[in-house]
Design a protein around this nucleic acid. Structure first.
Lengths: 188, 188
DNA sequence: GGGGATTTGGAATGATCAGTCAATAATGTG
DNA sequence: CACATTATTGACTGATCATTCCAAATCCCC
């Protein structure tokens, strides 16, 4: 039949993700992307369409992995509140590299339907998991019963965005850990 | 002597700020800027040097006004905790437009010394004011005494960044208000 | 009111941008 | 082994980028 692709799609996508995380969409040139990805220019366009579609694909892959890691952290620990604490802790630990989701939202807001769709789809999954954990923690007596799960979930989402922006601004990880602890107090 | 400048520097700078807030540095073309600013192309380069210096100047002006507004909110109200609450409330109310500081940090992190300098200078002022208010609120019995003022200040800074990113992501202002309330609980 | 200084707008400039083309290389099947 | 099919490579394209040049317009001071 035909010549097979020499590179692993997910692998080069990870390289693209790394570039986009650091420089954003506008700040990442096609040349910088192909260099980091280790493929030819044409291979990029053959395999991904154009720069925007590559960005969408990168975002989708990133979101998949990120949400999965969030969920794993949330489900760890014996009590629901432990999972929530580990969820925040993991964000602190990984905050040195910029989050592609936060970067994308800051760069484009809600102005691109296809991007918005990805954010909303994954956001809903994470939000649902957070609500479930919060209700469970309330049942355990670890989260204040007069806290609305949706509000608490929104607060936690906002908190992780805040931690990531703070990290990007150069805030000491020890301070970030304190921020996470303080946030947890807010829902207790 | 010479022909006077036909435009008000601060006024065109405000127009530039509006463009940068919405599209970031890379996303704002010189053409888009001069159009929004209502001046000629050459006038931009005469008055501001180049696009990057314009960005720096815009950031500086924005930070000046923003910090001033933060401080005014913090100092309002009879009790210190009221000022902190109004500070958060103001952020919620103004979060529909993207914050230039958050945008800049997400786009460039700490990679540009001149930008970092602006962020740090204004950040220190705001941080100092927050610490002072927190100590005052602790003296009033409105903030937990076992809360370290520096940690609480970092938490509040992180919180406003989170609220702004959430707003940019399309979160309902009512939810943002709930986020602010929950955050306040974290330091009580 | 004239002259030196400076702003201004429009037309260039070179660089870089995203994206394409055409030729070459590599594969599986007949 | 040859053909059909696809991947790869590097040169190429038109558009847009930030920035500059230049000539005209405008003003203040003498």
């Amino acid at each position: 039949m035909a010549r097979p692709q020499e590179f692993d799609r997910d692998q080069v996508l990870d390289a693209a993700i790394a570039v986009f995380r650091q420089h954003g969409f506008e700040g990442s040139s096609a040349t910088a992307l192909v260099t980091a990805m280790g493929i030819g220019r044409q291979s990029l366009y053959n395999s991904f369409g154009d720069k925007w579609q590559l960005y969408r694909d990168a975002m989708h892959r990133y979101a998949t992995g990120e949400v999965e890691a969030h969920l794993a952290a949330l489900r760890s620990g014996v009590r629901a509140i432990d999972g929530i604490q580990r969820f925040l802790q993991r964000v602190v630990e990984t905050a040195q590299e910029m989050c592609l989701g936060v970067s994308s939202i800051c760069e484009f807001g809600t102005s691109h339907a296809d991007l918005l769709d990805i954010h909303e789809r994954f956001g809903k999954v994470l939000n649902a998991a957070l609500c479930e954990r919060i209700r469970r923690a309330q049942a355990d007596g670890d989260v204040s019963p007069d806290m609305k799960p949706d509000d608490a979930a929104a607060f936690l989402m906002s908190t992780i965005a805040g931690i990531r922006v703070s990290a990007r601004a150069g805030t000491d990880p020890k301070i970030l850990a304190a921020v996470a602890r303080t946030a947890l107090r807010g829902i207790r």
